[in-house]
Amino acid sequence: MSHTLYAFMTGLGFQLALAICLAGTLFKLGLFFKRVIKKDAAFLTFFSFWYASRSILFHLIPFASRNSRLNPQMTTISTIFHAAVITLPLFYSAHAVLLSDSGILFLPRFPEIVSDTLAVAGVAALLFFMGRRLLLRDVRFISSLMDYLLLGSLMVLFSSALWARFQMPGFLLASLIHIIAGNLLIASIPFTRLSHIFYMPITRGYAGSEFGGVRMVKDW
């Protein structure tokens, strides 16, 4: 049973998750731009790829924006977390094997020490994020059930990955949980706060376009 599920989740299940993610993203972006054309002429008029890129860059480079300098802990930890969550799905050796076996992508593979460190750092970062959400009054005030669920799902994803990687007791179940959690998270990207992955270039980009192109002021 578990072998059948494993085969499904690494095959058709993964393709399905990817398809839902891509179709959902395209649908959301399509709807966004359809509405922009209908209702928000300012967006199309003022969006500037130059100023958008400038703003996005200054907000992504750690310590380039004033707020990132004012929050050095958060900047460092969230940078490491994003490095882990973006690179590990592609360059962790086991993922790379699955991808190359499926004939989708042939990518270089991280040495084990790199992927292990990133995964452990990812768990630590998630604990930090959960700590902020629970302990900081302003973050707790705006947190919803979905925010906790999302963090919990990521925690399951990372910890089951480490469990499986170090082949601790029950690692086969852990790897199954990891694969299911991964697929569910991929499929949920367009429908949850993970949508910031594709909305960020639009929202930060538009802010940068307005501040840079219209108001002639830097926005970082």
């Binding site: 709807l31 966004f32 509405r35 922009v36 209702k39 928000d40 300012a42 967006f43 707020n67 929050n71 958060m74 902020r132 959400r133 900081l136 302003d138 973050v139 705006i142 947190s143 919803s144 925010d147 706060r193 949508s195 910031h196 909305y199 960020m200 639009i202 929202t203 538009y206």
Partner: peptide, 19 residues
């Protein structure tokens, strides 16, 4: 009808980080 679609994008993309 009136608001920009950015409204929904902002609400959807805000990760409630408190920064």
């Amino acid at each position: 009808e009136e608001a920009s679609p950015r409204l929904k994008a902002y609400l959807s993309t805000c990760v409630h980080c408190g920064l």
